[in-house]
Amino acid sequence: MGRVVKGTQFVDLQDAGDPVRLSKFYELHGADELVFLDITASSDGRETLVDVVKATADEVFIPLTVGGGIRSVADAEVMLRSGADKVAVNSAAIADPRLIAQIAKRFGNQCVVVAADVKRGATGQSGSSGFEIYTHGGRRPAGIDALEWVKRAESLGAGELLITSMDRDGTKDGYDVELLSRIHDVTSVPVIASGGVGTLEHFLEGALAARADALLAASVFHFGQIAIEEVKDYLASNGLCVRPPAYIDRVRG
């Protein structure tokens, strides 16, 4: 079975435990959705991922997005049949954007999350916005402007955008507010903010300043620095509408 790991700026991975147990824990503590991103994405890795998705879907009853190594409609179908509700495509969609349209046509736009790893332009090839797309787990600059790409992804049928700031990933410096709000300005599908959360204030900033529709965090939850209930209480106390954790013991048997 696979493991949950978390890195800093996509390297220096640390083990965070068993994905099925962790998923159940997060469900019970009020997570609204789960995202699995397979960072190995090899063919062996994919078999492992399918097993993890099945085992998770057998026990965890909140929406699950699975990504990493989805290269075809057939790959997407395997994940959806295994219990994923949505698939996230990244490198393969950049290599062949038709993949987005193909999966959307077959399973509906709501099933297709386009994940993009974005870095502030260092190579000078990033076009006008200064934000550049990287692929292959953040190792390769794609030479594509991030804002142009998300617009194209939406027009092809992306139902959601999962935007990870490589500059912020694992740093705990907060979401990249400028990146996220500029993506919000040029698209109309939900944006999931990812990369950089370290404090409760960062979550609020992600919802308000960055105007993200969904807030993803990994390190702070995996390593127990912040509990999901704390995030929700904090957001609610600042006037946001959030689903409170529904504890099993509040349910009359």
Partner: peptide, 26 residues
């Protein structure tokens, strides 16, 4: 689509069997 968690207004909480399994939780 509406693709999200949403809070329900339960119209007949005293007689509903469907929603009779949980009180207190939103």
């Amino acid at each position: 689509p509406q693709m999200q968690w949403n809070k329900l207004t339960i119209l007949h909480p005293d007689t509903s069997l469907m929603f009779g399994g949980f009180s207190g939780a939103e």
